[in-house]
Simulated scan of single mutants.
Amino acid sequence: MKLNSLGLPIIQSQELVTNLNGLLSNFQVYYQNLRGLHWNIRGKRFFDLHLKFEELYNDSQIKIDLIAERVLTLGGVPLHTFSDYIANSKLRVGKDISNDEEAIQLILESISVLLQLERQILIKAAEISDEGTNSMMSDFIAEQEKTNWMLKAWLNEEI
């Protein structure tokens, strides 16, 4: 089995790069959805949600950079065009959403997909002892599970 300079199997590392690029694409769509929600939210909860959406998109921007850098660290090339993002994303694009509950539902749907993708990457990274990717996914998952809980509480829904 051939190893890269990180001591990881080359073929499995390339597979992780593909999965990470998929996650990157989904995060880019998530980020853009959050920007749209931030700009277009209306109603009595405007001030609270406007700030919350900004917090979430700023966090997403950091995660996008971390994912792209991990792709590079593993020897890959991060996807970087909108056409690649759309082609590789599983997220629904939220267009012209101004209603508070509809906005939160879109975020919850998106987080659910992101968590599924991150857990798949976590499993594959663990199989080859890729602790760098594993650690990053674990951090993402913990943060998004908390966000999921908080948004569900806001909607007064059970987890």
Rank of each mutant, 00 (worst) to 15 (best):
G7P: 06
A153W: 05
S13I: 11
R45P: 00
A68C: 15
E102W: 03
M150A: 05
Q105A: 12
S13W: 05
N88I: 14
H50N: 08
G94K: 09
G75Y: 12
E15W: 08
L117F: 02
A87Q: 15
S138T: 12
L66M: 06
N156P: 00
R70M: 08
I10D: 10
N40T: 10
L155P: 01
L91Q: 09
S25V: 08
M1W: 03
L114F: 09
N33I: 07
I86V: 11
T133I: 12
K146V: 14
L3Y: 00
D130G: 01
W149H: 08
Q120L: 04
F53P: 00
R70D: 06
S138Q: 14
F140E: 00
A153T: 06
A153L: 04
K146L: 15
D65L: 03
T133V: 15
S129I: 02
N134P: 08
E145Q: 09
L72A: 11
A87E: 15
F47E: 12
S135W: 13
T147V: 14
S98G: 00
F53R: 00
T133A: 14
L115H: 09
I159P: 08
E143Y: 03
I97W: 06
V93P: 10
D59W: 09
L20V: 06
F140C: 01
F27K: 04
N99D: 15
S98P: 00
A103Q: 06
D96K: 12
Y57D: 09
N58P: 01
A125N: 07
I104P: 05
E102G: 04
L66A: 08
G75D: 10
Y31P: 05
K95T: 12
Q28V: 07
I86C: 02
N33Q: 14
D65K: 02
R70K: 12
I62W: 05
L106K: 10
I86Y: 04
H50V: 03
D65N: 02
W149I: 07
L79Y: 10
L3H: 02
V113K: 08
Y57T: 04
L56C: 09
K146H: 13
H38Q: 05
L8I: 06
E157R: 06
E69F: 05
S25M: 07
I111T: 03
A126Y: 11
A68V: 14
Q61S: 14
P78K: 07
L56D: 07
T81M: 13
I62V: 14
K95F: 11
I121H: 01
A142W: 01
N26G: 04
D65Y: 02
S138W: 07
K52P: 08
L72D: 09
I97V: 15
R35V: 14
M136W: 07
